[in-house]
Computed example of a mutant assay.
Amino acid sequence: MSAADLLLELRGVHTHIGAYHILHGVDLAVPRGQVTLLLGRNGAGKTTLLRTIMGLWRASQGSVQWQGRDIARLATPQIAQLGIAYVPENMGVFADLTVQENLLLAARGARNAQQIDGARLAWIFQLFPAVEKFWHHPAGKLSGGQKQMVAVARAIVEPRDLLIVDEPSKGLAPSIINNMIDAFAQLKAGGVTILLVEQNLNFAQRLGDGVAVMDNGRTVHTGSMAELAGDAALQRSLLGLTL
Rank of each mutant, 00 (worst) to 15 (best):
H24V: 11
A59S: 07
G25V: 11
Y86Q: 05
R69Y: 07
Q100G: 08
T48E: 01
L37M: 14
N90A: 06
H14N: 12
N42Q: 11
Q34P: 06
E101H: 12
F94Q: 02
G45F: 00
L105R: 08
L23H: 05
G45H: 01
A95L: 12
V99I: 12
G25F: 09
A95F: 04
E9Q: 13
G109F: 10
A95R: 07
D96W: 09
T47D: 00
V26I: 14
L105T: 11
G62E: 06
A80E: 03
L56I: 15
T47F: 00
A107P: 10
I22G: 01
N90R: 10
I17N: 06
A107Q: 01
T47W: 00
L37W: 02
I79R: 10
H21Q: 08
T48S: 04
P77V: 03
I22P: 05
A19M: 11
L49M: 10
Q81W: 05
G40L: 09
V99F: 02
L8K: 07
L49Q: 00
Q81T: 04
A107V: 00
G68H: 04
A44T: 02
Q67E: 15
Q100M: 13
A59D: 05
Q100T: 02
A59Y: 03
R69W: 06
M54Y: 03
R41T: 13
M91P: 00
T15W: 12
G92Y: 08
P77H: 09
L6Q: 12
A59F: 11
Q65S: 08
S60M: 15
T36A: 06
R73W: 10
V99E: 05
D96V: 13
H24F: 08
L97E: 02
V35N: 02
R73P: 15
L39Y: 05
T15Q: 11
K46D: 11
V26W: 01
V35H: 03
Y20F: 13
R51E: 08
L104R: 00
G83R: 09
D27P: 15
R69H: 12
L8T: 04
E101C: 13
R51V: 00
L10Y: 06
H16K: 12
E101Q: 13
G55R: 01
D96R: 10
H16P: 07
I79N: 04
F94W: 11
G12Y: 06
A107W: 00
A106Q: 11
Y20P: 02
L74F: 08
I17L: 15
M91H: 10
V93L: 12
L82W: 07
W57R: 08
D5N: 14
I22H: 09
L8R: 07
G83F: 06
L37D: 05
H21I: 14
L6N: 09
L37F: 03
R32H: 13
V99M: 10
G45K: 00
L104I: 14
L37G: 02
Q100D: 04
L49I: 07
V87Y: 00
L97F: 08
R58I: 13
L39P: 12
P77R: 14
Q67S: 09
A75I: 12
D5C: 06
T98C: 06
E9T: 09
R51F: 04
H21F: 14
L38W: 11
V13L: 05
L56T: 02
N42H: 13
R108Q: 06
P31T: 04
G62N: 10
G62I: 15
L97Q: 06
V30M: 08
Q61V: 05
R58G: 07
P31K: 01
I22N: 03
L105I: 15
L49G: 01
T36C: 13
H24K: 14
L38M: 15
Q100I: 02
